[in-house]
């Protein structure tokens, strides 16, 4: 099964919609609750990153019996130094976004901690792509 969701930059009202839909689907399929938690943490953080930093983006979710693969591609400013962006506490979020409690530099580390496989690539001025894979049948990372 595959699903596609569109995300609009700056639209915090709908942030988390894709995560919520995917969570419902995994619950219906009877996926282990620890696995669902890990999927939700990864997808929500990645979704909010598009809302907070990019202009727009697309989330592709591919689901089979063993794995869930989530690819998030955005049009946006990109990340100049990925190693720096991966560090806990580093963030380029605006003051407005930080006031909401986002932009604490915890998103990418959260994804990294909960994914079985996590790839990130970016081109400054063009956009960022995240590829996250989680095994559905093994709760531990």
């Amino acid at each position: 099964m595959s699903f596609e969701y569109r995300v609009t930059g700056g639209d915090f009202t709908h942030a988390g919609y894709a995560s919520s839909q995917v969570k419902k689907m995994l619950k219906q399929l009877g996926v282990d609750s620890i696995v669902i938690k890990r999927v939700v943490v990864c997808l929500y953080e990645a979704e909010v990153n598009i809302v907070a930093h990019a202009w727009d983006g697309i989330i592709n979710v591919e689901l089979d019996t063993d794995t869930i693969f989530m690819k998030l591609t955005d049009n946006g400013p990109g990340i100049a130094d990925i190693e720096q962006a991966m560090q806990k506490g580093f963030s380029t979020a605006s003051p407005e976004v930080r006031e909401m409690g986002f932009g604490a530099g915890m998103g990418l580390p959260n994804i990294s901690a909960n994914a079985d496989r996590f790839l990130i690539s970016s081109e400054p001025g063009v956009g960022t792509t995240l590829q996250i894979t989680i095994n559905l049948n093994s709760p531990a990372v």
Partner: peptide, 24 residues
């Protein structure tokens, strides 16, 4: 009050104490 902190560390069934008030 940090949303990613709660996302990453709160356990299911927990009560969340915060000063954040927005819909996220």
């Amino acid at each position: 009050d940090l949303l990613s902190d709660v996302m990453g560390h709160a356990e299911a069934g927990a009560v969340w104490v915060t000063i954040q008030t927005h819909r996220n």
